[in-house]
C-alpha cells in the first residue's frame, strides 16, 4: 500500500523508539536529579522556616511568662525587703544584747581582778610595813638605850 506524503510506519516506530530513549534518558540524567535537589532545598528552607516559627512561638510564650512574672515581682521584692529588714533588726538586737552581756561580764571580771589586786597589794604592803617595823625595832634595840626603847614601845602600844 502506497501511503501519501511518504508516511512510513517503520520509521514512525523508529522515531518513537528514539524519542523514548531520549526522554527516559533525560528524565534520569537531568530532570530527576535537578528536581530532587530543588525539592531537597525547598524542604531545607521549609524546615528552617518551621524551626524559626517554633522558636519564635516559644520566645513569645517566654516573653509573656516573663511579663506576667514582672507584674508580681514588685510585690515580691517589697516582701523580700521587709523580711530582710526584720531579719537585720533582729540580728542587730541579738548582737547588741550579746555585746551588752559580754561588756557586763568583762566589767565584772575586771572588778573582781581589781579587788584581788588591791587585796594583794594591801597584804604585801602590810607585810612590808611589818618587816620595816621589825627592822627598825631591831636597829633601835641594838643602838639606843632602854629609855628610848621604852618610849618607842610605849608609842607603838599607843598606836
Amino acid at each position: 500500500m502506497n501511503i501519501p506524503l511518504n508516511i512510513d510506519f517503520q520509521q514512525i516506530l523508529l522515531h518513537l523508539f528514539n524519542f523514548s530513549i531520549l526522554s527516559f534518558g533525560l528524565y534520569l540524567l537531568l530532570f530527576k536529579p535537578v528536581q530532587s535537589f530543588m525539592e531537597k532545598r525547598e524542604h531545607t528552607y521549609l524546615d528552617m522556616h518551621h524551626k524559626a516559627e517554633t522558636e519564635l512561638k516559644e520566645a513569645e510564650e517566654l516573653k509573656a511568662a516573663y511579663e506576667k512574672h514582672l507584674e508580681t515581682v514588685e510585690a515580691e521584692v517589697e516582701e523580700y525587703k521587709k523580711k530582710a529588714m526584720e531579719e537585720a533588726e533582729r540580728e542587730a538586737d541579738e548582737l547588741l544584747q550579746s555585746t551588752k552581756q559580754q561588756a557586763a561580764q568583762i566589767i565584772m571580771e575586771a572588778k573582781k581582778a581589781a579587788q584581788k589586786e588591791r587585796e594583794k597589794i594591801l597584804e604585801s604592803a602590810q607585810k612590808e610595813i611589818a618587816s620595816m617595823v621589825m627592822d627598825a625595832a631591831e636597829k633601835l634595840l641594838s643602838s639606843s638605850t632602854s629609855e628610848a626603847l621604852d618610849r618607842f614601845l610605849y608609842s607603838v602600844k599607843k598606836e
Binding site: D8, Q11, N18, F19, G25, L26, L29, L30, V34, F37
Partner: peptide, 29 residues
C-alpha cells in the same frame, strides 16, 4: 535500512542531548 535524513538527525540530536546529560549529571549536578 535506508531511512529519511530526519531520522539520522533525530539520532544525532538524541546522542548529543544524552551525552550532554551524562556530562552534566557527572560533573555539574
Amino acid at each position: 535500512k535506508d531511512v529519511n535524513p530526519a531520522f539520522i538527525s533525530a539520532v544525532v540530536v538524541t546522542s548529543f542531548l544524552l551525552l550532554a546529560g551524562v556530562c552534566i549529571r557527572l560533573f555539574v549536578i
